[in-house]
């Protein structure tokens, strides 16, 4: 059974111009999928649809067979628990006025998840490679990579089955990026991962499946290795050709 299904979803900020045009996607448990495209290709819009932050103008999104309905509070509480997100910019994704404990525990409080929150937050922080003694510190006391780990801890603390990552490593320096990619890779062993990026190299390292978006349309999708080895669509070929290479 599919975890999340998107059927011919379209979305536009105005009636004349669609940002996403008839996108279909099937996400099964255990998948690791990369959504790839240039800026403006509609990948972040698709992600916002998957998060239930916006509703499709047309088409359907179903989660475990049930229609995604932002007006259904009980459904959305379970959906939020199961689907979490990590954002691109670790400097704007953490509230500068909250301490690490309050930040990471927010899903536990808001979704009224029972249990020892302090212990759950500590476990989440340790699992992303942070010390347990950072609970009472503010975000500005951490580096970009550490902040992104805190953001990942917040995303996994409620035990989601699907983790969405929106350009989660593109704001980081190279060495930090590698470590966060390794962390996401290890998380993808235990949960489904949808990784939005314009970086084909990172997607190749992280994702088994790849979906290529161009101007709001899915132009190519399939196993990452075969698509990168043998791209069929001209846009995919152009994307691959545009990857910078070290001079010989």
């Amino acid at each position: 059974m599919s975890l999340l299904t998107v059927e011919k979803a379209s979305f536009g900020y105005s009636k004349t111009r669609l940002v996403l045009d008839g996108a279909s996607l099937d996400i099964s448990p255990g998948d690791s999928i990369g959504l790839v495209g240039e800026s403006g290709s509609g990948k972040t819009t698709l992600l916002r649809l998957l998060l239930g932050l916006i509703r499709p103008s047309s088409g359907n999104i179903t989660f475990k067979g049930a229609q995604l309905d932002p007006a259904n509070a009980a459904f959305m509480r379970e959906y939020r628990r199961q689907v979490q997100v990590v954002f691109q910019d670790p400097y704007s994704s953490l509230d500068p006025r909250q301490k690490v404990f309050a930040i990471v525990a927010e899903p536990l409080r808001s979704l009224r998840i029972a249990g020892d929150h302090r212990q759950m937050v500590t476990d989440a922080l340790v699992s992303v490679g942070l010390d347990a003694n950072v609970l009472d510190r503010f975000p500005h006391e951490f580096s970009g990579g550490q902040r992104q780990r805190i953001a990942i801890a917040r995303a996994i603390v409620s035990g989601p089955s699907l983790l969405l990552a929106d350009e989660a490593v593109s704001a980081l320096d190279l060495s930090t990026r590698i470590r966060i990619v390794e962390l996401l890779k290890s998380l993808s062993q235990t949960m489904t991962l949808v990784f939005v990026s314009h970086d084909l190299g990172v997607v190749a390292a992280l994702c088994e499946r790849i979906v290529i978006l161009e101007k709001g349309r899915i132009v190519e999708a399939g196993p990452t290795a075969s698509i990168l080895a043998n791209p069929q669509h001209p846009y995919t070929q152009r994307l691959l050709a545009s990857v910078p290479r070290m001079p010989a």
């Binding site: 998060l51 932050l53 628990r81 997100v85 704007s92 994704s93 509230d95 808001s110 979704l111 917040r154």
Partner: peptide
């Protein structure tokens, strides 16, 4: 800010 979107996706 992204932390507001994160709060929304956290069910706040």
């Amino acid at each position: 800010m992204d932390y507001i979107t994160a709060a929304r996706t956290s069910g706040t």
